[in-house]
Every structure is written in structure tokens, then in C-alpha cells.
Design a protein around this nucleic acid. Sequence first.
DNA 1: GAGCACTGC
Length: 828
Amino acid sequence: MSKTQPEVIHGGGDIQNTDHKRGKKRKRKGGDAGVDLRKGAGKVTKFDDEEQPIEEIIPSTVPTTSTETPKPADPGQLVHAKYGEAPNAEQRLKGHQPKQPEKQTGKQPNHVRDEREKQKEQPKKVPSRPWKTANGGQSTYQSHHLIKKRDELLPKRKALPIWPQADSIRQRLRENNVLVLTGETGSGKSTQVPQFLQSEDWCIKTIAITQPRRVAAISLARRVSEEMGSLFGAQSPTAKVGYSVRFDNAAGPNTKIKFLTEGMLLQEMLRDPEMKQYSAVVVDEVHERSVNVDLILGFLRNLISKIESGKGGRKHPLKVVVMSATADVEGLVNFFAEGLEQDQKALETSSVPKTISQATRDRISTCFVEGRQFPVKTTYLPEPTLDWVECALKIIFQIHYKEPLPGDVLVFLTGQDKIEALEKLVNDYAAAMDTGMPKLLALPLFAALPQQAQQRIFQPTPYRTRKVILATNIAETSVTVPGVRFVIDCGKSKIKQYRSNLGLESLLAKPISKSAAIQRQGRAGREAPGQCYRLYTENDFKALEERTMPEILRCDLSQSLLTMKARGVNDVLHFPFLDQPPRETLGKALMQLFHLGALNEDGTINDLGIKMAKLPVTPMLARIIVEATNPEFDCLLDVVDIISALSTEDSIFFNIATEEKREQAEEARRNLYRREGDHMTFLATVQQYAEEQTDRKAWCERHFVSHRAMQSVMNIRKQLRQQCIQLKLLSSEAPTSNSTPNTDAILACILRGFVSNTARLCPDGSYKTFFRNQLVAVHPSSVMHGRKIKAEAIVFSEFLFTNKSYAKKVSAVQMNWVEDVMKEVVPM
DNA sequence: GAGCACTGC
């Protein structure tokens, strides 16, 4: 048996997985030969040692704590897969979402439905009649395979902490419509709760279960379909388990359990406010408090109040399960109870009732499930330190000298600069270690790191080596690092905060919250008892905030408010927010929407606003798209290309580490760079990439452009074009690429969306914003950075404060253009 | 001369 998790997690046996395994086998055979997996690439030997136990590979001289090592197939660990560990690996290796077979939307023949009904009565029975697969044949074999897998998984499911509570959970939801379920990490709640509910009498429609991240939605869906012995997603229209994430909808007419990202559920709520296609909505990972989760909870609270007071148009029940890892049960119960109480007292009264009666509170069920976590011993610094990089270095070596192998170290740092600094230090000191010592392998981990480098944390630790993973808070939620027994926590993380009065985002290292510190600490106890070193004093810990400030209190609300308005929530000031954003922030966001032309003077949404809300981009970018359809400008396709590039998360022009490489890259990118600025540079890049028909990957390599980013750009571009056709902004005829882009028209449109992000050149060569006269520097990542001849005015699509105010994604404009748009937007 | 982490019709 292998002790590594990724293999345990998928086992689905598709080609990617097999490759993944092979890669690791080679690696393991290579043993202490080195770290670089790619060395052996291509030379596939034999794989008959597939099941060779790790003990036979690692000589017995290596100190192990094998008695503490949990069973590799621990279902508790499998649940963690939703944090994206293995599928993340798989997916990121591919560079984009796994391609699903063509969606099959054909109507279900009656016999299939009958099968479904039968199965519902006797969930353990196998459908006697194998379904037809797209390629025919194989289905019987496949069905046996699925059932075998399902039966194998059943004992593991039964061992999950949540299993004994199944009846209790079902009972509580029969009594009440809302259940608040606190399930610690490893309890199995995400995979089991939907399965507990699917055979209930009230459950005649689909169960939706939301996830903050795409990979989590997909990997959970795969896991649950295996546990149910069902096909998965788009494999067959009869599949009972599906998922829906951006660019990839794998749910069909027979989907009983559907995992979706929070954003997708919100979009569905726009089309179907009463959620008639669902019998239950399970909101998972509520403790992460994403903006989307807050909106979903507000909408659900309104909907439940409406249903319970008999006003809804729904014909069948709707059950809501709110699942959280931390125990803020009280807050969530009160939140929903308040909705019920308020409804009884007639919705007109806007004042929130101060007291909630016990009777109302009893209408919200609660449930607590313990997790599966090993104890973690925590150590604090006796005195505070300023240099925690140095401090982390000492502790790493202290652990390495004192503690037996295996046991990797995970260090939480704030950002790339600190990670790279510490990486260098660890490597330098490790090189000077006594040759008799086990080796140390420092592995950086942050989102901007190329995928291949990120994958290294999943490769098995080489012989007589201890991994030291140096990570940002990507390792807190998104990536589960296997093999960690020691955590070092610097107590800080970089947080993005939007200041609506300045229209500026800041990205600064701030102290983390207690719950984040506990989350980090817990990463040491996933596989065995662990240790956590906090690089601050116990008093510092006690002084931390209890919870991380929810995102909704620190982000630009204009997009959320536009979504709400489009869904018919006009009075956004009285929307039930779990945490009420300051009135001023709401007001600023409303003003912004008004200036963008999305709202009427009375604050109601207009046709333009409805169109903007339907575009999957920020309101500013949506306004630019609509502006481009103005006959005066007529540059929609070019603008869509630019917006696609602006809205991809990873940068198209990745950073280059060494000086000589950088010069090489500048040279290679020269025919992409445009003197008009970043936006026209993006346009040239997208268009040249799109024109490349033979080998786009090679094109990217030649131009030092990120292929992964460009694939994502093309996905967004396709989606935006489709949406433009639906909104009748674009005629459906095949779009033809323009001869020469009309720069002036394009920049005029960009100006319309970003009037407030404009600055003029001052005599001393600096830029100051038009509105607030605030000093702003052109970011070094811009093609406009360091120009000798400076533009008289600039427009920028990002405004960020780190060590000073930076304009990112900048274009040169003429002073009178800015004045013209300003007159139009804010008539004086 | 610099880059916390997610996500959507």
C-alpha cells in the first residue's frame, strides 16, 4: 500500500491518474537520486511493484514512527481531498479544467426513470438493466466495477464520525426546514450529508451542495458518485451525481446530488428565485465566509421565511443545511430565526427584533459532529520577534536535528519575497550540514508559482529527507500538504482590503485571527500527532481577533449589489447580511453603479444594469463591454479580447527570475508590447495567440507568455462572446477579426468604465488622480513603467496599495478624453 | 522595479 494520498483519492483509473502514479513510481524507484522527477521522464520501466509497501522501499535504518501512521485509506483523509489536493494536482497538470464528454441532454426513456424509482426504494440494489453508454458495450463490466467500488467504500463511510448521526440529521430535517451543522475537519460531512438526505420522502428533487472552490466541487462529486456506485457527471445522462462549475456543467436531468460552486448557485438563483429545481440546499464551508456564501445565506433566509409563512409559490418542501467547521452555531441560528420572527411581525417593519423567542429558535435545528484530528502540541516564543524569517530558520533546524523522520515541516509565511528569502537560507544552511544527517528539501508554495513547481509538494519525500514546505495561506484552505507533522506559523498573512472612499485596494501583511491560527495549527495533526510553533508570544495569540473579518466587510460591493438588484432585491440596505457592511460602503457602491449607468436616479435597476449583471465580469468591465457596442465606437470584439485578459486570475506575462532571462523575455515580447499601454498589449497578445493555429503552446514559449493563462483567457473570451450574442450585443454570425484595432475607440470605452481610475501627469513627472489628487505610481509590471516620455494622462484598471499606491494595467490617454467622459458621468 | 487566496451567466 502506498502511504501517499493522491493515489488513494482518485483511484478512478483514468489516464491522467495512471500517468500520475507512474510518475511517482519512477520517483520512488529513483529514491535518493534527486528531487527532479523530470529527469527520468519518458523512460518508463515497469510498474509491477505498484503495491510494494513503503517499508520495503525505505531501509529499516531510517527511524520511522510507523505505529502512528494511520491507515492510508482513512476515509477522514479522503474527505480532505475536497481541499483540492489530488484533483488539484491532476487538474493543474493538465493546465485547465478536465474536458468532459459532450453533454447529453436527451430525454430520459421511461425505463430509466423506473429504475431510479426502484433504486430509491432499495438503495442497495443494483440496477438490473445496464444503461447504454455513448460507446455501447462495456456497460455491464462498468456497472460491476462501480458496484464493487461502492461496496469497498461502504465500511470506510461507516467509520466516519458523522455516520452514527445519520438518523438524527434526517429526523431534525423532518421536523424543521433549517439545520445548522457544525462538523470539524475530517468528519465526512461534505460527502455524507447529501447521501443521508437523498432517500428522504421530502426529497423529490435535486440536492444542491455548494463549495467555495471549483476543484472541491468536482472532486467531491467524483467521490460521492463512487460511494453511491453511480456514474459520474457527464459520463452518462443517468448519473445521479453531478457538478456545475464555470465552463463545466456536468449535471443532467437525473442528477440527484449536485455539487456546485457558490457563484454558480447564485447565478441559478437569478433565474429561479424560488429554487424550484431543488429539494435541499446544503451550504458547505460557511466558516470561510466568502462574499458569495453571505449572499446565498441572505437569499435563503428570505426564501425560507417566505415559504414558512405560506407565501411561496413552491409546491414541495425546501430544506436548508448550513455546514461550518467552526462553532459559530449561535450566530447562524439567530440569523435564520431572526428571519422567521421578522416575517411574523410583518416584513414592513425594518427594525430587526432585538429578542428572538426560544420557540422561534427551536425552529432551527442544530447538530455537532466531531472531527478526526490528532493532538497538536503548541509552542510559543517567550519574547516577541521582529525577524521571524530568521526565527523560522532556527526552528526548522531544531526540528530537523531533534525529531525523527518521517515528519515534514510546513511554514506559513506572508508572501513570495519571504518565502524565497527563507528558501535560500534553508538551502544554504542545509548544504553545510553534516553529511550523516538526513537531507532537508525546501519547497516553496504560493499561487503565482508555476504549476510544475507546485506539484513537487505532492511527490513522495525522497529517502532520508525531510521536506520543508514554505507556503502562503494557500496551504490554509486550498491545498492540503501531505506528510506534515510540524507547523511553523508566523502569525501574519497578506489581506486585500478595499477602501471604497479611495477606490483603492490595499494588500498588506496583517495579524491573522485566532481561528486562522488554529486552522494552521491543525495542519500538523492530519496524519499523526504533531507540533506547532507560533512565532509570537502566547499573549500575542490571546490578543488576536477571534475570527477573520468576513470578506464582505472588506471588498468592493458594487458587483454584489448589482446581482441583488438584478434578482429583485431593490432595498439593499435592508438585505439580511450575516455581517452588515457599513452604510457608507453600501452607499459608495450604489453611487458607483449609478455612475456606471446601471441604476436609475431612484436606485432601481435599469435595462443597462440588467445587461451588465448578466455578464460574468465586474460592473466596470461590464460597462466597457456595453459601451463598445455604441456605433460611435463599434469595437466590441476587441474589447471582449481585452476584458478576457483583464479578468483572468493569473498573469499572462509571468515574472522572470533572472536578469538575463528577463532581457530575453523583453526581446521575445517586443512585438506584443504596445506603446499605447497594457490594454492594447493584451489585445495584441490575445489576437496573435488566437491566430496561431498550429502550436499555441510553442507560441507561448517563444513569447514568454503563460500558456495556462492564455487558455483561461480563451475560455472567458468564448463565454463572453456567447453572452454578448444572448444579450443581443453581438450578432450571431461568426465573429471576424478586425483588420486594425481602433485604439482611440477602445480607450474611450475603457475610460467609460474606469473614469475614477484616471491620473494626470504632474510637472515633477509623477501622476496624481483626477478625483482626489492622490499620488500614484505606474506599477513595474506595466509596459508603461519607466517610460522616458510620459503620457499626459493615464487610465488604469487596477489601483493597489502595497508599499505605495500603484496603478496596474495602465494605458495612455489624452487629457481632453478624460474631461469629456467626466462631464458625461458627473454632470457639473 | 514588484506579485495573500478564491470565484461567475
